[in-house]
Design a protein around this nucleic acid. Structure first.
Length: 275
DNA sequence: AGCTCATGGCGAG
DNA sequence: TCGCCCTGAGCTG
């Protein structure tokens, strides 16, 4: 269950273990048998992430494109690798390590130009140093769509998922229903800079933490969060609980088939009326 | 054993 | 906007 920080982390994890090495590739589940055969006994030459897309380079002109979707998981382990379970789509193994991919939305062999087409349809990624938030602003500032929906649109900004969306809007006191074109440039610049910071922290710690030090449980005299998603957050999955800052009841609503969370006190409605 | 839900995204209508 | 794809955990019975 990954957002962009997880994918960047996994690209680094693959690289650490297999870059420059000849790997064995198999598809115990069978759905990627042909692709695995074509990279078996090849050298992993490159790993890259853009948003939630992961690329493993076996050049020339040959990449494995992985997208975990909502359920996909990647697990690393040592050698010898244990017998794979029958849901392993792709196992990559070296004499010292193995990696098992399960449940991805996408695991496919692609060419350089197919890879480029994927980059071309993705927006700037806060975790790619060369990417620029101004490109996203061009579209956001002209859109009547709510900022909450725009933040999840990978064509506009790549790598943000449901947790970062809710949390970054909270951190900036922005109504999720505010149309993109009603944001100020200063608000967007602050959001982008914050995502660059938060997501880099996410890569480092391998979890999403968005709570400022002065609002951490120990600073606020409350117990630490216990939740299966792991990090300290302000609003994500905290529906009907009290806001850590103002005490208002955190609200939730469906937006484009995803659950949105926000604090009506800290993020007062300035956008369109909502039900 | 069966249901629900999850940090995602696609295509049909 | 809905249904669908992928998997697994945590309920319920």
């Amino acid at each position: 269950m990954p957002e962009g920080h997880t994918i960047h982390r996994l690209a680094a994890d693959y690289g650490e273990r297999f870059l420059g090495r000849t790997i064995r590739a198999t598809s115990p589940q069978g759905k990627f048998a042909d692709g695995a055969a074509l990279v078996d006994n090849q050298v992993l030459a490159d790993t890259e992430a853009h948003g939630k897309h992961l690329f493993l380079g076996f050049g020339p002109d040959r990449w494995i494109h992985i997208h975990l979707g909502l359920f996909g998981k990647l697990g690393f382990g040592g050698a010898p690798a244990p017998p794979p379970t029958d849901t392993v789509r792709l196992r990559i193994a070296s004499p010292s390590a193995h990696a098992d991919l399960r449940g991805p939305t996408t695991c496919a062999l692609i060419t350089d130009s197919e890879k480029q087409a994927i980059h071309d349809r993705l927006g700037p990624d806060p975790l790619r140093p060369q990417d620029d938030g101004a490109r996203a602003w061009q579209r956001i500032s002209r859109s009547r769509t709510t900022i909450a929906a725009l933040l999840l649109d990978q064509k506009i900004i790549a790598g943000v998922g449901n947790v970062y969306r809710a949390e970054v809007l909270f951190r900036h006191g922005i109504d999720p229903y505010l149309p993109g074109r009603d944001l100020t440039r200063a608000q967007w610049d602050a959001i982008w800079a914050d995502l660059v910071f938060l997501m880099a922290e996410g890569v480092r710690h391998n979890r999403i933490d968005t709570v400022r030090p002065e609002h951490l449980p120990e600073a606020m005299g409350r117990p630490p969060r216990v939740d299966d998603h792991g990090g300290e957050v302000y609003v994500y999955r905290r529906a009907h609980l009290g806001c850590h800052i103002c005490g208002s009841e955190i609200r939730t609503a469906g937006l484009a088939a995803r659950n949105l969370f926000w604090c009506p006190g800290c993020q007062p409605a300035t956008g369109a009326p909502r039900s």
